[in-house]
């Protein structure tokens, strides 16, 4: 018998509003891997994360996390949803938001607990957010909010991070800093990372594997195997070209058509 990895999807399909988003997805991620999830808008990247969180039930197939069928509410997965920013008027301290990640789902009043306070402080420290932890979350910058949210995702002892576009709307320095932070968490704590991104370049040096979602299907492998003209053209079903710039960046061109694939229509 094979040892089960961190994440395993078998013949999985997801349906939203009566439409198949992707089908026949087979995917396996090992514990401690840093995986980038790429693909055009609307391809179903966020849906993939929601499926492994148990928020979106599969239409077909199965998904297992650490060998067990998924269930909503598991504290093994830390989730950072795709979002704009917090409302600037939201007047809740950043550190309280991290604390909610620890025991926010429990009923009853939250009583003072030094152990929990320490745990929260440790995570805030880890992501380098101690300086602004007492400020209202709405007043923080995008990068500061992302750090707080990563601390929130980690605080319950998650072994897997499902991060939906954590680098969005960050400047280059912050993209770099947050990517390095996530990489170091992945390496030092053995946390499995699934990170949705639109631009592979800031994370290219760190990723073990990319998962490409397009055209209703999913392809995974090493970055250099997947992000190639022939592979992506086959996946998209329309001509796509992968260019390598002189400074080592990868650019995917030709994805002009927003991919709205309807496997039902065949």
């Amino acid at each position: 018998m094979r040892i089960l990895g961190a994440l395993q999807l078998d013949h999985a399909a997801a349906r939203l509003g009566g439409r198949l988003i992707w089908t026949e997805v087979d995917l396996e991620v090992q514990e401690g891997e840093f995986v980038a999830i790429l693909g055009p808008n609307g391809a179903g990247k966020s849906t993939l994360l929601k499926a492994l969180l148990g928020v979106v039930p599969l239409a077909e197939g199965s998904v297992r996390v650490f060998g067990r069928p998924v269930r909503r509410g598991s504290d093994e997965i830390g989730y950072l949803p795709q979002r704009r920013r917090f409302d600037p008027d939201l007047r809740i301290r950043a550190v309280d938001l991290v604390r909610l990640g620890l025991d926010g789902e429990r009923w009853g009043m939250s009583l003072p607990s030094p152990a929990k306070t320490n745990r929260v402080a440790e995570m805030v420290e880890l992501v380098g957010a101690a300086a602004y932890q007492d400020r209202p979350i709405g007043e923080l910058s995008g990068g500061e909010q992302q750090r707080i949210l990563i601390a929130q995702a980690l605080v319950s002892g998650a072994r897997m991070l499902a991060l939906d576009e954590p680098l969005e709307s960050l400047d280059l320095n912050n993209q770099q800093a947050i990517s390095e932070l996530i990489r170091s968490i992945c390496q030092t704590r053995g946390v499995t990372v699934l990170l949705v991104a639109h631009d592979i370049n800031p994370i290219l040096p760190f990723v073990d594997r990319v998962v490409y979602v397009a055209g209703g299907h999913v392809l995974s492998g090493k970055p250099q195997e997947v992000i190639r003209t022939e592979t992506l053209t086959a996946l998209y079903g329309t001509p796509v070209e992968v260019l390598h710039t002189s400074d080592g960046r990868i650019v995917v061109v030709g994805q002009y058509e927003p991919v709205t694939h309807h496997p039902d229509d065949h």
Partner: peptide, 12 residues
């Protein structure tokens, strides 16, 4: 109230 998406994923 403050974080409905994460709350939902955490089983709230």
């Amino acid at each position: 109230s403050v974080d409905p998406d994460v709350a939902q994923a955490r089983g709230v």
